[in-house]
Write a protein that binds this DNA or RNA. Structure first.
Length: 207
DNA sequence: GCGGGGATTAACT
DNA sequence: GTTAATCCCCGCG
């Protein structure tokens, strides 16, 4: 008999499978990302980020607007690393930060160039320990969801890696603030391009 | 090639 | 509050 704290393995797997199937049915089409970058960053809150058999609810994002945005990697124009930012909306942009952490971004823009949204935190949803800390922060979320540069440049239209509509977030629960860790960007550092679900335990910068 | 620095995190003092 | 870890990008010459 399985102990109360440790559900039987087959039952857990079946629940996860159902949850992932439901998410797949709610997958956002690529056209959804072809809008103003800020709007996408806001709308991603409450959506599920799914990779393989794991998923998290997005609770924190940042918008990087394009070459004119001095906090964005696009500020140097198109380079070997960031070229995908100048490509199709709905493409992943994954890079290594401080030689240690993988950062997961989604290209999101209308006609303007090179907009992208950094996903900074997720709450556990499927296949993750029920602990808000595992996805709290951009480097930790990629580890929790097993995302790395191996996923760089992929379109979010497959079954293995995608974003799905999940929870509706009320406007009054969304808070904007300056982006984290971009003090080098002059006036751009002060712009309120970070979006969080207010008070959510998985938002970074707590305890 | 070289040198400076980074969209972070955990472990210190 | 400070710092190490640790890789590779980018600008410049």
């Amino acid at each position: 008999m399985p102990s109360p704290g440790r559900p039987e393995r087959g039952r857990l797997a079946a629940e996860s499978k159902d949850a992932l199937a439901s998410l797949r049915a709610q997958r956002l089409p690529l056209g959804w990302y072809a809008r103003e970058t800020e709007a996408v960053a806001r709308a991603l809150l409450g959506c599920a980020l799914v990779h393989g058999d794991r998923a998290g609810v997005i609770v924190e994002t940042e918008a990087y607007l394009g070459p004119e945005d001095l906090a964005s990697h696009a500020r140097f124009g198109s380079t070997a690393r960031n070229a995908v930012m100048f490509g199709a909306a709905g493409t992943t942009y994954v890079y290594l930060c401080y030689g240690v952490h993988e950062m997961f971004n989604i290209v999101a823009r209308d006609r303007r160039e090179a907009g992208a949204v950094l996903v900074r935190a997720v709450a556990p949803l499927v296949g993750l320990p029920d602990d808000a800390r595992v996805g709290r922060g951009p480097g930790k979320l990629t580890r929790a969801l097993a995302l790395s540069r191996a996923q760089h440049g992929r379109l979010l239209d497959g079954d293995g890696l995608f974003v799905a509509a999940h929870e509706r977030v009320r406007p009054r629960d969304v808070v904007r603030s300056p982006r984290i860790g971009v003090d080098y960007a002059g006036a751009w550092a002060a712009r309120p391009l970070r979006f969080i679900i207010a008070g959510h335990p998985a938002v970074s910068g707590q305890r």
